[in-house]
Amino acid sequence: MLRFTIRRLLGAIPLLLGVSVLSFAFMQLAPGGPDALFARNARMTTAQLEQIRHNMGLDRPVPEQLLVWIGNLLRGDLGMSYAQYRPVSQVIGDVFPNTVVLMAAGLTISLAASLGFGILAARNPYGVFDNVTSFFSYFGLAMPVFWFGLMLQLLFAVHLGWLPSAGMYSAAGGGGLGDLLRHLALPAFTIAIGSIAGWSRYVRSSTLEQFGQDYVRTARAKGLAEQRVVRGHVLRNALIPFVTVVAIDAPLYLTGAVLTETVFSWPGMGRLFYDSLTVRDYPVLMGTLMLGAALIVAGNLIADLVYGVLDPRISLR
């Protein structure tokens, strides 16, 4: 187990290195540069411009910039933000927890909903409940997430005024848990909708599969209570593949956050990324890309490990 973990961890390093080199290459595609804005600002002289380029390290050759960047990355240094004049780790660190809150809330909602809907639907396949959930699943999967968010915002925030339309806390006197939850409701549900739809269908089919297995029939034949059958046998076996799906999908919430955070003005990574795009803050963009990639790789790793732990038939080498 330990060896397997270490091996997979080591395997992630070249992967992330590959991501970082590719990201850097993409950045070089950009015409202009982060300094372009300075050049067109009134009251900036050519000499000042040269000095700023030098301070940013932009006057060095590209391969050297790449090496410097990767060297710093290996030491955990993501560089300085061009726009905010402070370390990227600070810039990201300020907003990352907010995105974690949003992702966690979304995950909780969609785990609870997809397990509930999925298992209930599997209990009585092709029944009314199953048909209704599968109808909404189709819808959930077909809707653009930001549009769904806009509709929720329009209905619950603008027209009904039940929930705040944007932000994470109220301006004055905010900060409590209740305040947070009220602000969280719409964006968390928005970010969750796609996976509620996808996951509940997954849970339904993998639960159904277990119901068909011989051991369940045996257990039922033995006269075990249905509750115990479900909890003791079916769930455990049905959940193994589900856990891996969740672990693989969860990091992608980060990217879903770009849209949700834009719609709901949530102060997180997605907003940071979007704002950094408009001002060409390369170091922050690169940092966000790397963080996203690291989360995806970590999710895959967890999926592998969990699979190993839950399913004794798989031996870890």
Binding site: G32, G33, A36, L37, A39, A42, T278, R280
Partner: peptide, 25 residues
């Protein structure tokens, strides 16, 4: 184009085409 590209060395103002650009000072 986005603001950095439009004001960069590959922006419209350095191409030989006839151009107009709408912006504010």
């Amino acid at each position: 184009q986005d603001i950095s590209t439009i004001w960069g060395p590959e922006g419209y103002q350095f191409t030989p085409q006839m151009t107009g650009a709408l912006f504010g000072w």
